[in-house]
């Protein structure tokens, strides 16, 4: 079983974000980045599928700048991925999911993956499309929001999450491309041995500007802070003052005490 996993680097979740003066992207200079949470579930699922089948390869694939992206790929390698592919992004940021998928397709189309996994969406752009479009470009069968997987010979059976606590089993023929919902597994930590062996694993670099893409289908023309229309009373003070105001709100506003 040869499995590709898309892992994206995104700002850590409680980052304080500021928009660049050109209003087209966030100021990234002072931010710390981590593996997109949904992708870490996809990586774990790929590793478990490989371990259960007893053979195969897991390839971690990422796109991003040269300074921070290798760290994310290295993290995947230290958890057990066998090698990495890094599409080095030196020019502008790409936010069109179609172009992103086209770039990934160019990078992996000759790999002959049986399975491609990714998180269902990224914590930055959250279009929820890149993984699925990549599956289309690779000509694979697809499913999304997967919370359980089971390889059955030439098929992959997945449990898909529907809305409001409903689920559905879907059987796909391999090769397949599925997006993974959080909670499907408990992602592992890298072992010391894993961290040491990751240093010897290959990360193949490709330059984004040298990969063929089509024309973009959508463009981001402005990024900004949302104007807030709801009035929020911010309760300040020391813990005792906060607690007494909260009790007051529970009694006189919410009337639940």
């Amino acid at each position: 079983m040869k499995i590709g996993v898309l892992v994206k680097q995104v700002p850590v979740s409680d980052s304080s974000l500021r928009v660049n003066p050109d209003q087209l992207w966030v100021e990234e200079g002072s931010l710390n980045f981590e593996m997109n949470e949904n992708d870490s579930y996809a990586l774990e699922e790929a590793l478990q599928i490989k371990e259960q089948s007893g053979e195969g390869e897991v390839v971690a694939i990422s796109m991003g700048p040269a300074d921070r992206t290798p760290k994310i790929i290295r993290e995947a390698l230290s958890k057990g991925a066998d090698r990495g592919i890094h599409i080095v992004e030196s020019s502008s940021h790409e936010s069109d999911p179609y172009i992103l998928a086209t770039l990934f397709n160019e990078a992996v189309k000759d790999e002959g993956f049986d399975l491609v996994l990714s998180g269902l969406q990224s914590d930055d752009m959250s279009t929820g499309q890149t993984g699925l479009i990549l599956g289309e470009l690779l000509g694979m069968s697809t499913a999304t929001m997967v919370v359980e997987t089971e390889i059955q010979g030439e098929n992959l059976k997945v449990k898909r999450e529907l809305e409001s606590g409903w689920f559905q089993w879907v059987t796909l023929s391999l090769p397949a491309c599925v997006t993974i919902q959080s909670g499907i597994n408990q992602p592992r930590y890298a072992s010391l041995k894993g961290i040491m062996s990751a240093k010897r694993k290959e990360i193949r670099e490709l330059q984004k500007d040298e990969l063929m893409t089509g024309d973009s289908l959508q463009s981001l023309s402005k990024m900004y802070v949302q104007h807030k229309d709801k009035r929020t009373e911010m309760i300040e003070g020391d813990t005792q003052e906060i607690v007494s105001r909260l009790v007051d709100v529970f009694k006189s506003e919410a009337k639940v005490l």
């Binding site: 700002p11 979740s13 974000l17 928009v19 966030v26 936010s95 914590d123 930055d124 752009m125 959250s126 959508q218 463009s219 981001l220 023309s221 402005k222 990024m223 900004y224 802070v225 949302q226």
Partner: peptide, 10 residues
């Protein structure tokens, strides 16, 4: 975008 922290025009 960014989990609701920012808005983008597309």
């Amino acid at each position: 975008v960014y989990n609701g922290k920012l808005i983008s025009d597309i």
